[in-house]
Amino acid sequence: MAKAYEPKIVAFLCNWCSYAGADLCGVSRYQYPTNVRVIRVMCSGSVNPLYILRAFQQGADGVLVSGCHPGDCHYLKGNLYARRRFAVLRSLLDYVGVDPRRFQVSWVSASEGDKFAKVVKDVVEELRRIGPQKRLKRRV
């Protein structure tokens, strides 16, 4: 029996808020899909668009970047820079034919374990419907 398509998602979680939130989610035994591979970064502002494109290049079907809520960044403004950067990146991806829903950004605080579970569930569902990512995937 052929395996049903399961999207692969790479998630960059900021150390201070979102990673802690994801950790809380696990400790609280909230269920969320296993499609997500987590990479801990110090701040959402440290996520270079190169990493996101690289993830797509390596075959990721979706990328999630999650950070602190604006105003709560451990480094004060990192997430604000990230917000600008990701707005531009998302728009550009859409422009060249990569579904913008493949690149998701969220603000998840350290106490929002349930929100993390919800975000992941929603993103995985959406990406399951869209199908595998082919446009940026390295073909050779």
């Binding site: 917000r83 707005a87 913008p100 929603d122």
Partner: peptide, 8 residues
Amino acid sequence: EDPQEFVR
């Protein structure tokens, strides 16, 4: 005030 409608 940078736009963030795309953020969950």
